[in-house]
Nucleic acid binder design. Structure first.
Lengths: 358, 358
DNA sequence: ATGAAAGCGCTAACAT
DNA sequence: ATGTTAGCGCTTTCAT
C-alpha cells in the first residue's frame, strides 16, 4: 500500500500545520520552506514570496521542539535569579522577552535559592531538559562559583547582569562605581559634609563598587570616609530602615544618607518620617536603581537610573546572536546610567544658613 | 559496513547522554528506560533499579524536545500577564515553578500589553512555537474575551488566576467578596461608621467583588454605602494616593479607608503621612493582598492575605495533571484567605472618646 | 537555486 | 514484563 495514507486530509482540522503543509501549498520542497523560515540565501524572490504567502495563509509557526531536535538551538533563554527586588526582576524579564520576540525565542524563568544544597542540580535540570541556548544570570548569581562552573561544565553560554568588571564574566552592566561617585559629588556640591552610606548586600558584586565610588568622591574633597557613618544593608526596605535608625542616632547625625539601592532609600525615608525628620530639609536621601516606587513616593527620590530593561534586552541579544552562530565576544558590555535628581536632596540646613550669612 | 559506527565512542564527551546510552549501560531496551523515566508499570524492581543507577551514573535527563515531538506534551507551562503588581507576579511565578520542579516542567513567561493590537498573535506564537501544555492567565487576562477565544481556538488548556466566579472559566481563586466582607466587618466592629472605599482597576474581575463584599457588610449594619466615600483606583500606589486625597478632603472625613489592594493602601498611608494624619489614631487603613511591603512598612498594614503562591502552585498542578492525562475538571478551585490584623486599624477617635465616657 | 534522504531523541503502537 | 518499529517536524548533509 502507499505509505502516506489520508495524512493530508487528516491534517485538515486538529493539529497545527507543519512544514509539509506549507511546502505542499507553495508547491516547493520542505527544504525551501526551511530556507525561507530561517532567512537563508539561495531562494528566488518569487519562491520566497510564495512560501511566505503559504505560511501566512496557514498561520504556520515552526515547532521549536522539532527545530531543537534536528538543529542545535532550542529557541529558549533561561533567566536564573535570586534577587530581592521584584521591580528589578520584572524590568529585566521585560527586557529579555522584548528581545526574544523578534527571533521567535522565549524566556524560561528559574527562581533559585543560591544557598540551597540543590541549586546546581536545578540549573543542570533546566539546561539539560530544555537544552537552552543561553542563560541570563541575574546578580548576584553571576558571581556564584558553583553556578558558574556548572554552566561551564555544561558548555552553556551565559550572560551575567552586572558581573564584576575585570572578572572575565560575559555580561551587561554599567559603571556602578562612577555612578556612585557622581551621586556623591551631587551631595557634596550641595554642601553636605557628613554623609551616611548604606552598603548593599555583601554577596553582591556591585556592593563594593558603589562603596568605592562613594569613598573616592569623598576623598576627592578631602573627606575621610568614616566607619561610623557607614552601615551594612541587604538591599531590602527593612534593612534600610534599620540602617537609618543607626545612622541617625549618632551625633551629630549625617545631613544626608546615600543608600546603595532604592528599596533601602525608601526605608530611610520611612524611618525619617517616623522620627519627624523632614526630607530633604533636615536630611537628604539618595538611592540607586530608579525603581517605579522612586518616582511615585513623596517626596520623589533622587536616585541613579539603572538601565535594567536595556540590560535584559542586551543580555538576550548577546545570547541569541551567539546561538545564531554570529560572533560571540564573551565580554562585558557597559550601558549608560543617569542621575535622577528629584526632591529628596537639597542643601543641608547649616550650609543654607552659612550661605545666607555669607 | 555496520550501520552504527563509532557512535557510542563519539558520545564519550561532548553531547549529553541519551536514552540509548542509558539503555546500553543498564543492559535493557530503550523502551524499558522510557518506562522507568515515566513511572510506568510493567518493569521489575531489579531492572528499574538498574536503570535508575545508569541514569544517575550518566546524569541523564530526557530531552524535552524529543519528548514533545514524539509524545503529546511539551513540559512547558506559559504564564501570561499584564498586571501592575511586581510582588504579585513574583509570588505567582514562584508558586508555578515550585509545582513544575517535581515533574520536570518549566515555566515560560510572557508579559503582554492587553490593549496592544498584536496580543493575540503573541499568545498564538507562544502556544504554537512551544506547544505549551497549559497557560496560566494572570488577572485580568482571564477575563479577556480575545485572549480566551484565541486559546480555545488553539485547543490549549488554561487556568486563570482569580477568574470570575460563575464564569465557567477554569482556574484558582479565593472568595474575594467574603474576604472584603470580613475586613469591613472588622472595621465596623472597631466602631467605624464613615468608611472610605477605594475600588480596584475597572478591568479586573475582583474589583466589583471586593466592592460588593464591602457594601454588603455595611448594609448588614444598616449603613448605606455612599458614592462620596467611594473612590475609583487602579491598583497602583499613585492611584491610592490620589484617592486618599479626594476622600480625606470631604467633611467630615472618613475615619477609615479600605483599599482594594495593598499598593493603594500604601498610597493612602503615604498621603496621610504627608498631611500629618496619624495612622491608625486619626485614620484606619486596610488593604488587600498581603504583599511583602505590607508587613514591612510602619505601621504594619492590616490586610487580607491572598494565597498567591498557592494559587500559582495550584494552577500549575491543574495544568500538569491534565497534560498527564489525568482527569481535568475545568472548574474554579477556591483557596482560603486570612485576615491579617496588624497595626493600621484601630477604633476611631470619637468612638474611643465615647467608650471612655461610657 | 533546489531537492532527497538521513537522522535528532524520544514515545506510541504493537509485537513477543 | 520486555523489546521492536515507526514516526513526530524539523535541520543537515549531500546531490543535482
Amino acid at each position: 500500500m502507499a505509505s502516506r495514507p489520508p495524512e493530508d486530509l487528516a491534517r485538515q482540522r486538529g493539529k497545527p500545520p507543519t512544514i509539509v503543509d506549507v511546502a505542499a501549498l507553495a508547491g516547493v520542497s520542505i527544504k525551501t520552506v526551511s530556507r525561507v523560515v530561517n532567512g537563508e540565501a539561495n531562494v528566488t524572490d518569487a519562491k520566497r514570496a510564495g512560501v511566505q504567502a503559504a505560511i501566512a495563509a496557514l498561520g504556520y509557526r515552526p515547532s521549536a521542539s522539532a527545530r531543537t531536535l534536528a538543529g542545535a538551538r532550542s529557541f529558549l533563554i533561561a533567566m536564573l535569579f535570586d534577587n530581592p527586588s521584584e521591580a528589578y526582576l520584572r524590568d529585566l524579564q521585560q527586557g529579555v522577552v522584548s528581545r526574544c520576540r523578534d527571533s521567535a525565542y522565549h524566556l524560561v524563568v528559574e527562581p533559585l535559592d543560591r544557598h540551597a544544597p540543590g541549586v546546581c542540580d536545578q540549573v543542570r535540570a533546566t539546561v539539560m531538559d530544555l537544552r537552552v541556548d543561553g542563560v541570563v544570570l541575574t546578580c548576584p548569581l553571576g558571581e556564584d562559583p558553583a553556578i558558574l562552573s556548572t554552566l561551564r561544565e555544561l558548555g552553556t553560554a551565559f550572560a551575567a547582569i552586572a558581573p564584576m568588571p575585570g572578572s572575565e564574566i560575559p555580561g551587561v552592566g554599567m559603571d556602578d562605581e562612577q555612578a556612585a561617585y557622581d551621586m556623591t559629588l551631587h551631595l557634596l556640591d550641595q554642601g553636605h559634609r557628613r554623609i551616611g552610606f548604606i552598603k548593599g548586600h555583601a554577596e553582591f558584586g556591585v556592593t563594593p563598587l558603589r562603596w568605592k565610588g562613594f569613598a573616592r568622591a569623598l576623598e576627592a574633597r578631602g573627606i575621610k570616609p568614616s566607619d561610623a557613618l557607614t552601615a551594612q544593608g541587604e538591599f531590602t526596605f527593612q534593612s534600610g530602615l534599620a540602617a537609618a535608625e543607626r545612622l541617625l542616632s549618632i551625633s551629630p547625625p549625617p545631613t544626608a544618607i546615600f543608600a546603595s539601592n532604592d528599596d533601602m532609600a525608601l526605608g530611610v525615608m520611612a524611618y525619617a518620617h517616623q522620627r519627624g525628620v523632614a526630607v530633604p530639609e533636615a536630611l537628604s536621601v539618595a538611592g540607586f536603581d530608579d525603581t517605579p516606587a522612586a518616582g511615585v513616593w513623596r517626596p520623589k527620590l533622587t536616585t541613579v537610573r539603572q538601565p535594567i530593561f536595556e540590560m535584559g534586552f542586551t543580555a538576550a541579544d548577546m545570547l541569541i546572536a551567539r546561538a545564531k552562530g554570529e560572533a560571540w565576544s564573551p565580554t562585558m558590555r557597559m550601558l549608560p546610567y543617569a542621575l535622577m535628581i528629584r526632591e529628596t536632596t537639597a542643601p543641608p540646613r547649616r550650609a543654607l544658613a552659612e550661605r545666607r550669612a555669607g
